[in-house]
Design a protein around this nucleic acid. Structure first.
Lengths: 356, 356
DNA sequence: CTGAAAGCGCTAACAA
DNA sequence: TTGTTAGCGCTTTCAG
């Protein structure tokens, strides 16, 4: 018996390997591998012996070694792709806005909901500069992740196109401004706006205004279009608009402008809950009662909607479901590389609370 | 020239390997490896040739292969470890609460702040059941990640102990209820509570009450202790207490109870901002003006603190800095396995806004 | 049904 | 300074 063997399982330090388990069970590496990976055609008796040996040695398969041969990382990247940030503090500020955004938390929730049962976990990445985007691409090309889930908060984010060009599996949240040959999940924004408009109309409001998000976003355009069209169809031809940036401050500013120009407004449709909340603050400060004097409807139904006062009536976007669907689509593309890109559109729902 | 070689770089499909680059540059694999990894002692001229070949072939180093030999995943796990969930919907509900919690977003922000410059990315994991925790441990033992950053929201989370027992590098956010030989970052909770108490005292409030978090948490105990001690030192001997669960609803309920028993209260110190917000709602509904009739102070200084009305005066916890420090500590433990565990305590700061 | 053997792509001694 | 070589631990034909 060699010195090495007399040391026990052949290694004094380091984790036990297949080799160690094989020796302990008195079989070959191949057999242990088959048992560990649940491949059929293994004698139950041997199977048992192997399992015992695995437990005895405390064996854990080495992921790198496995990936090297299977060519699968069993990991996917969840990329938050923001606008290019030109500010000097870019490196420290980065996606703080986004990460703190409850919307992001809901996306994570949905993605994890799908991944967890499959024992997979997302790698979080932020891309806000050309260098970041290249990094994401090379991360995937290195095989560190099998595919990417992209959530952009910028209208013409170049990342989806880069990913598509590199032939990497990816799925996008919300249809990009420029069409890209990638699968994506989206909401029927027009329908959401219609829901809001009809509710306001049913409430008898005839002087509505709307606070939009950055108009470069297709989603923003559709919400605006859907709202106006529905109002027009019911005889309300002019709907004053103020553009916001999805932040509470921008919502406050937009509301203030709208109030100055249209003091007689009786309803507000904001492109997201956070801006709606900002609008509520301004409205209250100006002495308007909500919903008596002014009805307010938000969009998203994020955590703030229920926790602010008055609680927000809003158009719910099933973000968790959408995110889970993204993960499902991505898995499909990873397993079937030539599956064509598809778009899955979700239906919004009006959630009635106190503000309208 | 062989058929294989005439096909170009030797492979009709698959990503280019070191071998391909070496051939294109007319050098050995080892040299290419040195250039790619920035190792010195390589002739500048050759270095250039290699770089050119890398660009020409579109080479990207295979992470699995590298990890296999370096024994480093260059990845760390960010684990959100919740209480065991017994509800039937556990698998779908999981850490939704936590992920949507802005606190979590701040942790991610801080961790990424440290990791990003190092081109590393965190893998998100949730652990809420014994099975989940075992999974986290085996994930690390497989070498999928080099270490773990643990954020528990449960007093006696067994995960830190499991990690320590397995000898895996890990750092914990907030000192665990049971001492564990792991590094951790924490806040000086007593000091934070002292800050709040002194401010209330300076405001002339003499009938304060406090809404705590789950009292099993050491942090909660210290905030309570610090608040009471400071009050006592200034002659306020009895401070009514109501226990909450960190949620807005629990804050509302606690406030209602307190109000019923002590209608003459003139100040509230809540263990977090969310409960403080809930308290404000109840106070307002009962006709109390804030801060004129009742001064309210929260804890954390999360996103809600600034966005609710009245904006919350609160004790700021530098979560981002703490999270970044966690990552830094973890890196130290990964690179120097026998470095002893340490605890880094951060100082809180009082942020004055409108509520007190 | 099981074992032997050939790599996956890369790094790191060790030679030259 | 550069090349040669030996694996890292695993999966997977291919024989038996």
């Amino acid at each position: 018996m060699s010195a090495a063997m007399s040391r026990g399982f052949g290694r004094s330090a380091g984790a036990p390997t297949l080799e160690d388990v094989a020796r302990a069970a008195g079989v070959s590496r191949a057999t242990v591998s088959r048992v560990v990976n649940g491949v059929r055609n293994v004698d139950p008796v041997i199977q048992d012996a192997v399992r015992r040996a695995v437990a005895a040695t405390g064996y854990a398969p080495n992921r790198a070694a496995r990936s090297l041969v299977t060519r699968r990382a069993e990991t996917i990247a969840l990329v938050v792709s923001g606008a290019d940030d030109d500010s000097p503090s870019a490196s420290t500020a980065f996606a703080g806005r986004t990460v703190t955004d409850p919307f992001f938390g809901r996306v994570v929730t949905g993605v994890v909901q799908f991944l967890r049962p499959r024992s997979m976990h997302p790698v979080l990445m932020f891309a806000e500069s050309p260098a970041d985007r290249d990094h994401v691409v090379s991360y995937l090309r290195q095989g560190s992740a099998d595919g990417a889930l992209v959530v952009s908060n910028h209208a013409d984010d170049p990342l989806p196109a880069q990913l598509a060009a590199a032939g990497l599996p990816a799925v996008v949240f919300a249809r990009p401004a420029l069409p890209v040959p990638l699968s994506c999940v989206d909401l029927d924004h027009r329908e959401g706006a219609r829901l809001a408009a009809e509710h306001l109309l049913a409430l008898g409001r005839a002087r509505p205004v709307t606070i939009t998000g950055p108009t470069a976003l297709p989603a923003v355009q559709e919400r605006l279009g859907g709202f106006r069209d529905t109002m027009a169809r019911h005889g309300v031809t002019a709907v004053p608009v103020a553009e916001g940036g999805f932040s509470q401050e921008s919502g406050e500013a937009a509301m203030a402008r709208l109030l100055a120009r249209h003091p007689d407004l009786d309803a507000v449709f904001a492109a997201n809950d956070v801006m709606a909340q900002g609008a509520c603050h301004v409205l209250r400060d100006r002495g308007r009662r909500i919903p008596e004097d002014v009805a307010v409807i938000g969009f998203d139904d994020g955590p703030v909607a229920a926790s602010c006062r008055p609680a927000l009536t809003t158009v719910r976007q099933p973000v968790e479901d959408m995110a889970a669907e993204m993960a499902r689509l991505l898995q499909g593309h990873i397993e079937h590389p030539d599956r064509p890109a598809t778009t899955v559109v979700f239906a919004p729902r009006l959630v009635l609370r106190e503000s309208a």
